[in-house]
Amino acid sequence: MVTTAVAAGAALPSGAAPDPAVAEATATGWVPAPTVPWERPAGVICDFAVRAEPVVDEVMKLVLDEFPDGTPQREIYTGDLVMRVTNLETGAYTDADASGDALIEYHEDGSSTWYVRGPVLMGGRDTGGNLPRGYWRVDGLFTADIAANGEKTVTMVHGTQHDVCTDID
């Protein structure tokens, strides 16, 4: 789950009415956390060039604790997320559910620890860790320790891992 925060007071297009559910959630500290589409060249995540973009994105986040500089130290993510993963060489695509929940602890060295009830999507690279190159749908209960360099170590309590790249190869 790669997300970026949106300010709680983000402007709406002219004439647009705020969603009452979002307004209520924002009043309690929950804010939308839209997922950013991305592309990677062949060999980075999949054997082919790949794009992932949200087709359903109702993810919200709540900051639980902050570092003294105001950046998040612990936050929760939840909400429906379906990513369309497309093989840019053939046009084949699949829609992957990534609607899991996560508590993320950010560490001062730039690393983070995720406590997850999946499914979520995680990219693996040839940079170490125990998540090999691929775009993985990790489902179940697990932790993910993500080093500052992006190396991922996933520790499954119970669940499955599936490389979505194989669905569109």
Rank of each mutant, 00 (worst) to 15 (best):
residue 87 N to P: 12
residue 48 F to K: 03
residue 119 P to K: 03
residue 28 T to N: 10
residue 56 V to Y: 05
residue 84 R to M: 11
residue 65 D to E: 15
residue 79 G to K: 06
residue 88 L to M: 15
residue 138 V to A: 13
residue 18 P to Q: 02
residue 104 I to K: 04
residue 43 G to P: 15
residue 41 P to V: 08
residue 65 D to R: 00
residue 114 W to H: 15
residue 57 D to W: 08
residue 95 D to T: 09
residue 72 P to F: 15
residue 21 A to R: 10
residue 115 Y to E: 02
residue 142 F to V: 02
residue 49 A to I: 04
residue 87 N to M: 07
residue 128 G to N: 14
residue 135 Y to F: 11
residue 138 V to Q: 08
residue 53 E to S: 11
residue 116 V to Y: 13
residue 90 T to S: 14
residue 111 S to T: 07
residue 88 L to N: 08
residue 65 D to H: 05
residue 52 A to I: 08
residue 119 P to T: 10
residue 60 M to R: 13
residue 70 G to M: 11
residue 66 E to D: 03
residue 21 A to Q: 06
residue 99 S to A: 09
residue 69 D to S: 01
residue 27 A to L: 13
residue 63 V to G: 03
residue 55 V to K: 04
residue 126 D to L: 03
residue 38 W to T: 05
residue 139 D to H: 09
residue 108 E to T: 05
residue 86 T to I: 06
residue 78 T to M: 09
residue 24 E to H: 09
residue 43 G to D: 12
residue 23 A to R: 13
residue 53 E to D: 09
residue 30 W to M: 05
residue 24 E to C: 00
residue 21 A to N: 10
residue 33 A to H: 03
residue 122 M to L: 15
residue 77 Y to L: 12
residue 129 G to D: 11
residue 41 P to D: 15
residue 99 S to P: 09
residue 133 R to L: 05
residue 82 V to P: 06
residue 109 D to Q: 01
residue 130 N to Y: 04
residue 120 V to M: 03
residue 115 Y to A: 06
residue 42 A to L: 10
residue 125 R to G: 13
residue 55 V to R: 12
residue 50 V to I: 13
residue 136 W to C: 04
residue 56 V to M: 02
residue 116 V to Q: 14
residue 29 G to M: 11
residue 51 R to S: 14
residue 29 G to N: 12
residue 45 I to A: 12
residue 97 D to R: 05
residue 132 P to Q: 01
residue 85 V to N: 11
residue 80 D to Y: 07
residue 92 A to N: 10
residue 140 G to Y: 14
residue 125 R to W: 11
residue 121 L to H: 01
residue 18 P to Y: 02
residue 119 P to S: 08
residue 40 R to M: 12
residue 137 R to A: 14
residue 36 V to E: 05
residue 118 G to L: 08
